[in-house]
Design a protein around this nucleic acid. Structure first.
Lengths: 298, 298
DNA sequence: AGAGTGGCATAGGCATAGATCATAGCTATG
DNA sequence: CATAGCTATGATCTATGCCTATGCCACTCT
């Protein structure tokens, strides 16, 4: 469903965050490179759009009202996500001539890399990072061709020509909306899972292959799909607003599980763990910047 | 630091999400109530601002490019945070005559309630929710005066006049930026914590009182503050960009801990657990809507 | 094969949001 | 009591973005 038509501008939220931080409209205006009356009017607009008085203004400055403090917490979450987008984009746009070239799989690029890169570029403001998002086999190919300095993948590899180190963990879990019948079950066994139509990624995605492999290893047939979608976020939205289970990366639904918007269903004897690894060619020495990034993560 | 000046409009991101979901600019335009050419131009602007080609357009529709898929994951995170803000605001703005009146403490209101309310209002679209954010004692007072139907607090209560049920857990943890000396420590003992200047909430906040209580119980003096700030998000930002530890709700720094932007430091023998509880007056019967909300959470 | 349908891009006219500058009122400080 | 720092208001201007109308393209059904 679309966002409310009169949703405030992100720049207004950002300005508000600065006001809260600095304690004054004028100082916040200066930090954002606009005139003080503009800041005043933008914040007033923001208050009108949100329908809440955010600041108590006085001749000595402006401090948030009690409601303003709560709202500030919510807007901070939006702004952090926006900064993640910026960090990710900057890396995505960087020319191939950039100093540190990263190749990463989708899950890692979507849910972990922006945070890592934000911190990395704060610590190394003069260096640029280039990011290629590919599936695991392409990541390895890029590393072998010397087109990337370091890679991040979610599948174990057997080649001695690549070194690796585990930087995070992930797990595939079965989830349903809280009003689904499975939400109350103690557990569901694998036979039932294999026979229940699921929302799934398209054929050939890493997530789907891992699930098919696990079912096959346990002597079951291929899972049935009720809907096939091209991205993890699409799958998540479909499950949130539909009534079918899916098997999905825990990282992708962490906040929904925390908030109770989705419920995890234990599947008997099904455990698809994935260690998320940094990989690089064993032969070549790891570039300094790649070492620095790695040091941040371990 | 302020967001990039040319950061795209949230409505543009929202439109893009719809395009990805629906597979066509025109359909997305209709869903957002604008004309197709407007959608076309907005997406084109979005691509220019981000510096990335998001869609491959064709006479049969538009599907995201590989980069578009990654970006879509990042924008989804922003939009989810925006929906949380909307859900929270709607409750905050609702008149006191609203059907379900909730009183909650800051931590719960900031980090958990928006998600709960989003789901609740999807399931009960005709009902309105009013939210009052206060500290724990005020929450109880509102319940006693009958001004709220149900409350959420993070401190245990001893009065038999209130019923309670635990709906989530929280924990105060010590965190530092990853380049802080403590980040590499196995553990830090309480004496050292009590003597180290911390970033803290202002005197009288629940978080600070819990920490002071725990130190006092262990025979230590009051903690020293290097900086006192009025909101949890302000404390988090200060620690992220500074070089001092803080003791803070794990909920507030969950994503930073996951991304490695902050590091948790175990404090020997310090364990401040907080069960987050729903509370309501024992006498009166719990209103239907409050029961429904509670059922969602347990 | 031809008409119809659905999809995207371009061009021109118009309305509105938002920026600036100048000004004025308020409070604390010396 | 004057000054410095804060915010609000009003007048004016610019530019961004929307809408309608139109054209082109690909697929599909008769």
């Amino acid at each position: 469903m679309p966002l409310s038509a009169s949703f405030p501008d992100l720049t207004a939220l950002d300005l508000y965050a600065s006001v809260v931080e600095l304690g004054s409209l004028g100082r916040a205006a200066k930090m954002h490179g606009i005139a003080q009356p503009s800041a005043s009017s933008r914040i007033r607009n923001l208050e009108r759009q949100l329908g809440v008085t955010l600041l108590t203004r006085s001749a000595t400055g402006s401090i948030p009202t009690p409601e303003g403090i709560v709202v500030s917490g919510w807007t901070d979450a939006i702004l952090r996500a926006a900064h993640d987008l910026e960090a990710g984009l900057e890396a995505l746009k960087a020319e191939q001539s950039g100093r540190l070239r990263i190749a990463a799989s989708y899950t890692i690029a979507e849910y972990l890399l922006p945070g890592w890169l934000g911190r990395f570029s704060r610590e190394h403001p003069r260096d640029t990072v280039a990011l290629d998002v590919e599936n695991s086999t392409h990541v390895l190919a890029e590393l072998e061709r010397g087109e990337a300095d370091i890679g991040f993948i979610e599948t174990p590899l057997e080649t001695p020509s690549m070194s690796e180190v585990i930087v995070a963990h992930d797990q595939l879990v079965a989830v349903v909306p809280p009003d689904h019948e499975w939400a109350l079950r103690e557990a569901v066994d694998m036979t039932e899972l294999a026979q229940t139509p699921l929302v799934m990624r398209e054929q050939g995605s890493g997530t789907r292959e891992a699930l098919e492999q696990a079912l096959h290893d346990a002597g079951h047939g291929l899972p049935v799909s009720v809907l096939e979608l091209g991205s993890t976020s699409a799958v998540r939205s479909a499950v949130l607003s539909g009534n079918s289970p899916t098997v999905i990366s825990r990282l992708a639904v962490a906040s929904e599980l925390r908030d109770g918007l989705l419920v995890e269903v234990p599947i008997t004897d099904l455990k698809i763990e994935r260690d998320l690894r940094a990989v690089w060619p064993t032969g070549k020495p790891l570039p300094k910047l790649a070492q620095a990034l790695l040091a941040d993560l371990t």
